[in-house]
Design a protein around this nucleic acid. Structure first.
Lengths: 249, 249
DNA sequence: CGCAACGTTGAAAATCGTCAATCGACGTGG
DNA sequence: CCACGTCGATTGACGATTTTCAACGTTGCG
């Protein structure tokens, strides 16, 4: 694949069962990169849209708001992930998406995409696989919220994000940067900001994480994975994805 | 549809965009009803199986176990739901399934199903819709575990199960019976059995639920929905599904 | 300079879990 | 038939986790 291949195409290609022509066709219906500032609503709950997005650069959050202001973040989308694809098949969006950082996105329109998937079952299978993988991540979040302590949740989320980033070549020499402010992490982990901050303290003091102005830095992902006893199998990464994750498998 | 139409077929038919021939073909590859006792493992985590099931009668639970014995129940499958379909596309099962009650199940084999979906894109779309709906339920569970109190979680789960049952004609004159013991409900809600029981007490005392030997009875689902402020829209039910739910929409 | 957003900390209170014990229903072996 | 063991439900007492309220610090920006 050429160096300028969109991240989403690379992700679909990782499924392995699609050929270059499939990928070229998929790429052809992706509308060119769109530049979007941080904190832009992409999809609101209840929307009936016929577009979805592919993340080329930046982070997106999926979340659901309750009437009284409580918020639960469902997950984070990083380059290579799709945003709002399920809304194509459901009639209305069951949760909302907002950019967390400045993002570059490609547009996926419902009509052309569906036509393409009808013609090319292998692409449909690859897309389905990708969505199933996202659901496996969702299930692990459910386990975290239901059965893990605050410290376990935080470690697990950071490990998951780190592995996903590294496996796509987006890490930073053994670690990575998470652009989410603590209030966002708290909403993802089902914790209050105060408690998240307290949970962060021992990790900060032992150098596992570094808290900066714009998010959290994990300088040594392998060490975090080790101390957390993180098992990355649910991510469904393939050997060859990235050196660090390869080492874990 | 004939009266002996399998529950899974009726569920797929609810999507609306499939014709009778599609349904007949789908039915043709479903292997006849299998009778399974309670507490039978259908799929274990890590399994590589080429079969899935459709629930014709009874309840199934999807869950994930941690090494130290903690368990998180992901969701419940009732008649009309599928079990393990995502394992067809993922290489290994990312969570396990066990029957909660005695069940009648139909078998769905990977090969014939995939062949059929290639031939009939409308069926694939319907199946995809059904899986997307299940995921919307999963997302609501995530919100429950992350941001709702014990009492809210319990009410919400009972409302969800009640609406799903009633919408498929499985209720009991305004209410329903949940065959899950309290330990199972606790594992679904991310609570300890003791705390679940305490949470149940006020609902028991006000007559909202009745606790019997084999599970929990909700005699008046409409009242529970009212008191819980339950919003069933995420279930994606269509008008005509059932009188109670129709009334809510 | 003042404001706003985010991070940090303390103290008090609410929620929820653990440990331990009791009770009732049910099935099994004697 | 009855003693026994098991499983699930229930409750009390206690302790751990987590939230809430309140305050203060820091940074960046108009």
């Amino acid at each position: 694949l050429a160096g300028d291949t969109p991240a989403f195409i690379r992700r679909i290609a990782a499924f392995g069962q699609v050929n270059d022509d499939d990928l070229a066709q998929l790429r052809a219906i992706m509308e060119p990169v769109e530049d979007v500032p941080a904190r832009t609503d992409l999809v609101a709950e209840g929307d009936e849209r016929d577009v979805a997005y592919a993340v080329e650069d930046g982070w997106v959050q999926a979340f659901k708001d309750m009437e009284d202001g409580r918020r639960q973040i469902i997950g984070f989308q990083i380059p290579g992930d799709s945003v709002g694809l399920r809304t194509h098949v459901l009639r209305t969006a069951d949760h909302a998406f907002t950019t967390l950082t400045r993002c570059r996105l490609q547009l996926l329109r419902k009509g052309p995409l569906e036509a393409l998937l009808h013609e090319r079952p292998r692409l449909a299978a690859a897309l389905f696989w990708s969505l199933a993988r996202e659901e496996a991540v969702l299930v692990e979040h459910l386990v975290s919220l239901g059965r893990r302590s605050a410290h376990e949740r935080l470690s697990h989320l950071l490990c998951e994000l780190g592995c996903r980033l590294v496996s796509r070549g987006l890490g930073r020499e053994g670690g990575f940067h998470c652009p989410a402010p603590q209030s966002v992490l708290a909403d993802a982990l089902g914790l209050s900001v105060v408690h998240l901050n307290r949970t962060l303290r021992p990790m900060r003091e032992s150098g596992l994480v570094e808290v900066g102005a714009s998010g959290i830095d994990v300088p040594d992902l392998a060490r975090l994975i080790e101390e957390a006893g993180f098992d990355p199998r649910f991510l469904g990464l393939f050997p060859g994805d990235g050196s660090l994750v390869d080492h874990m498998l």
